Simulated scan of single mutants.
Amino acid sequence: MKKILFIDRDGTLIIEPKNKQVDSFDKLVFYPKVITYLRKIYLELDYELVLVTNQDGLGTSSFPEETFWPTHDLMLKVFNGEGILFSGIHIDKSFPKENASTRKPRTGMLKKYINNSNYDLKKSFVIGDRDSDMILAKNIGSKGIYINLENGKNKYKSNAESSVVLKSNNWEDVYKYLKLKERIVVEKRTTNETDIKIEINLDGSGKSSINTGIKFFDHMLDQVARHGKIDLSINVNGDLSVDEHHTIEDTGIVLGYAFRNALKDKS
């Protein structure tokens, strides 16, 4: 299934001017580093790019289309010239007061991607500079990446906070986050002496749940998780009535397999 980056336009790809309308060439300013790192994302990572933008009142007297399309088309031409291609472009022209089903964070513009077996929305992202983008991510079952030039990385609080996986003001951070693939492994092993299940997340925060039946061994494994910032869950049923040897040895073997498989893509 295809993964998608649903990307906002104003404030995300280009700088949003004070009057909120990029209606002349002198107002077309690209977000810092966006061309460099969006190109790397497009060429190196397995994502389709889809542009999703609200353009309040586009086509009305307050925002004539003839002032919009020349700058918009030039923006796309610059991206295309750098090898950055958008597979879809979705523009809502309504005003907020209209409550249109197609206006972000509502999902009307993205119906073709929802409940479509060709797309993996759980592994897709919405990238934008407003809370409406993060709520859109939640509404379609994706994750949100909040990028805003005027905000520090940790000051922004979203109404869809549980869906936000990254807050930044830098496209380089977005690239690095997407390049770092999820490194989570579940490893199981059953022998005549032991039954072991280990779950490891190399990009965790140091949380652990350890139960080997040997308290000091549990403590030492907890330290691996805590100081390595690794999430680690270990459950072992061993023949401790015989001795501790099999439990310790087999846990070490399975933990080694888990590390190896989590690191198999070292790029």
Score class of each variant (00 low, 15 high):
95 F>C: 01
199 E>L: 13
173 D>E: 10
110 L>Y: 05
173 D>T: 05
24 S>P: 07
80 N>F: 10
200 I>H: 00
191 T>M: 08
24 S>T: 04
20 K>N: 12
164 V>D: 01
190 T>Y: 12
120 D>L: 02
124 S>W: 01
103 R>K: 13
136 L>Q: 00
240 L>E: 10
74 L>E: 15
69 W>R: 03
133 D>L: 02
201 N>G: 02
95 F>S: 12
127 I>T: 05
220 M>D: 11
41 I>R: 02
262 A>V: 12
75 M>N: 02
132 S>E: 11
104 K>F: 03
265 D>Y: 13
170 N>P: 04
39 R>L: 06
58 L>Y: 04
71 T>V: 12
205 S>L: 15
198 I>A: 00
74 L>Y: 15
228 G>N: 06
111 K>F: 08
181 K>E: 14
176 K>R: 14
167 K>M: 12
68 F>Q: 03
5 L>D: 07
84 I>A: 06
191 T>W: 03
133 D>E: 00
136 L>H: 04
55 Q>D: 08
139 N>E: 10
38 L>F: 05
154 N>L: 04
11 G>M: 10
197 K>V: 11
116 N>E: 10
96 P>W: 11
194 T>M: 00
53 T>L: 04
236 V>L: 00
140 I>T: 09
99 N>V: 08
247 T>H: 07
137 A>K: 01
241 S>I: 14
138 K>P: 10
247 T>E: 01
61 S>C: 06
90 H>K: 12
25 F>E: 09
221 L>H: 06
44 E>G: 08
248 I>M: 05
184 I>W: 02
133 D>S: 05
42 Y>T: 13
153 K>G: 15
165 V>Y: 04
66 E>R: 05
15 I>D: 11
43 L>Y: 06
210 I>G: 01
257 Y>T: 08
249 E>D: 13
51 L>E: 04
103 R>G: 03
172 E>C: 04
55 Q>F: 02
69 W>Q: 00
231 D>Y: 07
121 L>H: 10
120 D>I: 09
256 G>K: 06
59 G>R: 02
158 S>Y: 01
110 L>F: 03
264 K>M: 13
60 T>N: 00
